[in-house]
Amino acid sequence: MTDFATIPLWIILPIALFLVIGSTLTLLGAIGLVRLKSFYDRIHAPTLGTSWGTAGIVIASMLFGSYIEGRAVIHEIALGLFITITTPVTLILLGRAALHRDRLEKADHLPEELRSLPEARDRAASD
């Protein structure tokens, strides 16, 4: 356990602020994930948690670590960078997979111009 009482207020306040911002945004993203009606709407919700949700908590952790250690502690940046780079990859793959499946099932909620697009045509040509 860290003894927080010995840490001055001017460093505690920004840490607490970033913690609250980060966790609130993550929670809002998760609530959106539960509440939104269609998959393509829901795909936007987690990005709240992975952009400023992660940034807030990473910044808080960095400020705290730097104060405790008495030097710049920046290894949390690695985590933030990793999340920033990997989330788009996951979401793009997931979006493509969802569109692919909806096309195969000829889902009604897809707009007309999306029902048969490049990939389906390409595959039809190569088969």
Binding site: A30, A45, P46, T50, L79, T87, A97, R101
Partner: peptide, 17 residues
């Protein structure tokens, strides 16, 4: 299935935080 995977993606980021 895509909703479940999206949920898993959110879950691991949240638990990491």
């Amino acid at each position: 299935a895509q909703d479940r995977i999206l949920g898993l993606d959110t879950l691991y980021v949240t638990v990491m935080l």
